[in-house]
Amino acid sequence: MMSITKAFVLSLSGLAFASLAHAQSADHSGAIKARQAHMTLYGTNLGVLGAMAQGNMPYDAEAATVAAESLVALAGIDQRFYWPEGSASGMAEGTRSMEAIWTDPEGFSAAQEALLIAATAMAATAGTGVEGIQAGMQAMGGACGACHQNYRVRQ
């Protein structure tokens, strides 16, 4: 029995070592996928709000609120594991993340904070009518754009 426990502990520490080694390797494809998926999730929820704002979908207070609150939740996620050192454009494949994300961490987190503020404002008005979404979309566009202007490499 002892040997089984020992083997279990050993295999656990082996796993821990393997994942540590993985984190230290230059393969950042997982983190890059994670941050791109996060952007897609913003897009999915913005798509619902945008379609209502543009009149392409009938206004639905509940759907608007759900989408806006999802944006708040997404914007509030601690993203520290999405941005490992060495995963900037030019260092890793398949990413447009600018090196400025790492050289200007204060500016980058201020940009993320601005998005959370815009999303929170959107959530407060999204359920009140289509005008509440339209005003919020402008602010969301501004927050998304400000970050893409300074921290994303041109295509």
């Binding site: 952007m39 897009g43 999915t44 913005l46 798509g47 945008g50 566009g141 501004g142 893409h148 041109r154």
Partner: peptide, 10 residues
């Protein structure tokens, strides 16, 4: 500033 996919300008 939103694209049809709700990406934005950069």
């Amino acid at each position: 500033g939103f694209t049809p996919e709700f990406d934005t300008a950069g």
